[in-house]
Design a protein around this nucleic acid. Structure first.
Lengths: 210, 210
DNA sequence: ATTATCTATAGATCTATAGATAATGC
DNA sequence: ATTATCTATAGATCTATAGATAATGC
């Protein structure tokens, strides 16, 4: 009987999908379980049948998204098999593309971490170990280049913050930026392409790679 | 009778103060009028006596903060009586200081504009006129410098986005950044001082001002 | 037998106001 | 007389569950 997907699977995932949208848009407090159920096309009771409580459903979404936080940040460090300039270029571009494909994620995570910093603590060991290792490698490489006069000396941590800031903020503040610069949303894709190049350039010039 | 401030004035402003804190922390939906009243040290009914509804009270805070949005962005453009390098340096530093002194403001405004983009429309004419004028002036100056080979050609709008991104994002994502870089909050002021210099440098190198 | 779904509603939470009382300023 | 404050509660909104019924998989 491969007619259709399992109906119950479908219901559960449709609730999850509707919940993600509602929680992203309105936050935990602003979201309504009745609205989520309606958007998912199921009765309200089904939501509680599958996830028991609103909090548990939210928890489920947050956990899923928290797992993307690492990638969201660390992808900017790039592939360490490449020469430094290519590595930086690739890191910035991949990171930019990841954010563009998940442009609602940063606002959601920033709000959630602000509201519940303890959630971040749970990931502490894991996160710092991986990040520390990657940052040390990058720092060593920058030091080597700088020693040979091939680039400006730089702090790898600061560089990471630079990249993430330049890539993420324009998405979070997109409506405000459109407003101030007078950009219309019509040429938004064009704006993004230019922005991506700009960010690569900004970082490379900071490093003065020759 | 200059013994004390007018008691009613005091009540009103204490409600406003408590409301700002509650709304910044929890958003409109998450805030409770009873909590605000308690934090302000007045009975719950007083809140409604002074501001009628929760929405009107929120509106009052949002309007106040929306008026800071312009300064939040445009202060980064700097004083056009200064030579370009000093102007940029001053703009970045002033903007950084403004954000540091109002580090909760960006998250609040980003969320509010996301939830109600129409609010931004209301400021449209005003904002674009001022920003357009300032950006045109800055662009002209950059063009002149670039023509003389004194700096790299650059788009003033992109430069503004660069500055705001570099200055604002680290405050919004402060807990996450601390987590990843392993910074403790103890040396946070030191971190901020370094960060401010970094941002000035990043922008100046992008422009390659000689 | 178990899993999924529905209708109907209990119970919790929160905003807002009614109505009484005290303080303040002409 | 007007303004500010309090207590008590109505009324709205929302989450969660009870209890009945239909669908599914051994």
């Amino acid at each position: 009987m491969d007619k259709e997907f399992n109906q119950s699977q479908d219901t559960e995932s449709r609730i999850l999908q509707a919940a993600e949208k509602e929680f992203f848009e309105k936050g935990l407090a602003g979201a309504r379980t009745a609205s989520i159920a309606e958007a998912a096309g199921v009765t309200h009771a089904m939501l509680h049948y599958y996830f028991r409580t609103k909090d548990k459903l939210f928890e489920r979404i947050v956990t899923e998204k928290m797992n993307m936080l690492e990638k969201m940040v660390l992808s900017a460090i790039g592939d360490n098999n490449l020469p430094l300039e290519d590595r930086i270029r690739q890191g910035v571009e991949h990171h930019f593309d990841f954010i563009a494909a998940n442009h609602e994620l940063p606002r959601f995570l920033v709000n959630e971490v602000y509201a519940h910093p303890e959630r971040l603590e749970m990931m502490k060991v894991n996160m710092q170990d991986i990040a520390g290792e990657m940052l040390n490698n990058l720092q060593r490489e920058i030091d080597e280049y700088a020693a040979k006069g091939l680039c400006q000396q730089a702090d790898a941590k600061m560089l990471l913050i630079d990249i993430v800031s330049l890539n993420v903020f324009p998405f979070m503040a997109a409506p405000i930026i459109s407003e101030i610069t007078g950009n219309t949303y019509e040429d938004y894709d064009g704006f993004l392409a230019i922005r991506k190049k700009e960010n690569v350039e900004t970082i490379l010039r900071k490093l003065k790679i020759h």
